[in-house]
Simulated assay, not measured.
Amino acid sequence: MTSLRSRSYLESMAGLSAVVTGGSRGLGLLLAEHLLMRGCAVTIAARNEEELGRARKFLTHARSGARVHCVPCDVTDRASVTSLMAEAAEAHDGVDVVIANAGVIQVAPLESLDADAFRSTLDTIYLGALHTSLEALPWLRRSPNGGRLALIGSVGGLLAVPHLLPYSCAKAAVAALAEGLHAELRGQGVSVTAVHPGLMRTGSHLAAEFGGDQAAEFAWFSALAGAPLVSMDARRAADRIVTAVERRRTRIVLTPMAKAAALAHGVAPALTTRLSALMAGLLPSAPDRAEGGGGLHEGRDITPGPDGARHTMAWRLRDWCGALNDRAARRLNQRPHRAQGGG
C-alpha cells in the first residue's frame, strides 16, 4: 500500500469535504476561501450566526457554484462539535479535511489577569482543538483517501510571549496535542499538521481583548500585528497553510521572525527567556491596583482617551503601522473599530 507520505504530492483535494472552525472571519475565513479554490466543499463553523451569514456571502460572491455550509457551533461544548461534524458530513457526503482554527486572544500583564482569564482561553483554544480533533477522527478515518487534520497553534505556543500568557499556555497545549496525535495516529490513514504562525495581518486586533493599560496594550499589539516587516499577509499565510495540509506536512512555522524565535528558543531557551523578560520591561505596566484594572475589553471598543494618549510613541506606531491590519479587518469580516465610525 502507498504510504500517506509518498502519496502527498500526488493528491488533489478537489471534491473533498472540509470543515473549518472559527471560519467566519480572519484567518479562518481565508482558510475556507483557499479550500474552495482547491475544489473542496466547505463547512464553516463559528458562534456568531450573523458573522457566518456575512462569511458565506464573502465566500460565494467571487466563486460561482462554491459549496459553502454554515453551522453555528461553540467549540468549548463537545456536544456542539459532535453536531457540527454530523451536519457537515450530511451536507457534503462525509468529512475529509478538518482545520481547528477557533481561538481568542487576551493581551494584558499578569497583574491584570485572574485564573478565569486563563481558563476561558484554554477552553476555547485547547479544549476547542481537542473537541474538534476527537469528534473529527471517526469521520476522517472513513475518508477514502485518508483524512487530513490541522491544528492552528502559534509561535506563542513554542515560546511564551509577555502579556500574552493565557494565549501562550493554551497554544503550547495545542502544539503538544498536534504532536501527540501525529504519533498516535501513525498508520491509521489520517495525517496531522501542526501550524505555528507568527503575527499575521488578519484584523484580529479588533476582536482581541485587552487589559491593564488597555489603550497602550492595544496600541503596541495592533502596531506589531500590522507592521509589514514583522507580520505576514493573511491571504499568503492561508495559502501556505492549506498547501501544507494538502501535502500532509507534519509541521509548519510561518514568518521568518517566528522561525528564528522558535529556533533560538530551542537552541538557547535560557537566553530567550531572559530576552523575553527584558521585552516585558518595555511593555505597558499594569495600572495601580487602587485604580482598578478595568477588566478586559475588545480592541474595537478601545480609544486613546482624552488624555493625549494618541501622542504617545505606541499610538504613533499604531497609526503608522496599523493601516494594513485595519484594511484586513474590513476585508475579513471583523467588525469595525467604533472610534473609526464603521466601514
Rank of each mutant, 00 (worst) to 15 (best):
K259A: 09
S3H: 03
R327G: 11
P144V: 01
R7W: 08
C40H: 10
L229Y: 05
G295M: 10
A160Y: 03
R310I: 06
E291N: 12
R7I: 06
L31M: 09
A46F: 07
G203Y: 09
V190Q: 01
L137W: 00
T124A: 00
V42S: 09
M1C: 08
R240F: 04
G308N: 10
P144T: 04
T272L: 15
Y9F: 13
A183W: 04
L151V: 08
H182A: 15
G322K: 03
L296I: 04
L282A: 14
S154K: 08
W315M: 09
V42N: 07
A290K: 15
L151P: 05
P284Q: 11
G189F: 08
T43G: 02
A175W: 10
R54D: 10
L177F: 08
A258C: 06
C40A: 14
G147I: 01
R300N: 03
I241E: 05
M85R: 04
A286P: 14
A160G: 15
V19T: 02
L317M: 15
D307K: 13
P336S: 12
V107L: 03
G65W: 09
A215S: 15
G343R: 13
I252M: 07
P72F: 01
T82N: 06
A258Y: 09
A41Y: 05
N145T: 12
A314S: 10
R142D: 00
T21D: 05
D233N: 15
I302F: 10
A102I: 01
S17A: 15
H163D: 13
M313T: 13
I44C: 06
L110A: 12
D307I: 00
G22Q: 11
G308P: 11
A261K: 11
D116P: 00
A66I: 06
E11M: 10
A173H: 06
A178H: 06
E11A: 11
E209K: 13
Y9E: 06
D74G: 01
D301Y: 09
L59W: 02
E90N: 09
V155R: 02
D239E: 15
A91H: 11
W320M: 12
Q334H: 15
L199R: 13
A238M: 12
L177E: 10
C169F: 07
A183D: 14
S285V: 12
R63C: 01
L254H: 13
P197L: 07
T124H: 00
R247K: 15
M257V: 14
P269V: 10
R78P: 03
R56Y: 04
R300T: 07
